[in-house]
Amino acid sequence: MFEARLVHGNLLKKVLDAIKDLLTEASWDCADSGIQLQAMDNSHVSLVSVNLRAEGFDKYRCDRNLIMGMDLTSMSKILKCSASDDIITMKAQDNADTVSFIFESPSQEKVSDYQMKLMNLDQDHLGIPETEYACVIKMPSGEFARICRDLSNFGENIVIACSKEGVKFSAAGDIGTANVKLAQTSSVDKEEDAVVIDMQEPVTLTFACRYLNMFTKATPLSPQVSLSMHPDVPLVVEYAIGEIGQIQYFLAPKIGD
């Protein structure tokens, strides 16, 4: 028996919004410790990893490890049937071929129950080694989304250059060039407005805008985003999922032949 109840059901809807443009289907691995998802996008350029800790749920039970392969478009359609303040419960029997989504209104006066067929998907996990990143940039997630959106108008790629002076996002194309520089903030009223750079050595990497823009669909999950960079390894873009976990996007950099 698997059962996971989330009073802040809206977080699950936001997680789906953050992955459904990148992935059409994926497996949710349910274990005693929580729920995890790891999947590559169809082009195998980026990798998404979602981690939802068991203790973050209001009720969590997983008697046996369970892999639930889901069509994420269908899951998203079902979650759209819930209200933003609904309590969401996911439930499945051991060896079941369906999963149930139960939506309860906060007053308990309305309870909806949706069942979805599960899929058998090929599991294709990549091992992500522990990496000491040369630069870790923490910045407001809305600012990052804005920069990616604005610079996409100039070219297909964004160059991210991190140095002790700050971080510079650049793009170039037919209409001209664009540069946005952010310095580390000295003092802010709200922690979520801070730009904090932890740099061991300067790093400059180039990434496809298209993917960065898809990652920014996670912006409603968290006021801050962290960008971890290291020479010639994938960028990690990470957003917290409330108090219950995090979503990480790994994006291969563009490198010379």
Binding site: H44, P129, I255
Partner: peptide, 14 residues
């Protein structure tokens, strides 16, 4: 501009 390689080039399959 650089070339886009797949993410598997950086991480091994488990």
């Amino acid at each position: 501009e650089g070339r886009q390689h797949p993410i598997e080039m950086f991480y091994a399959r488990e």
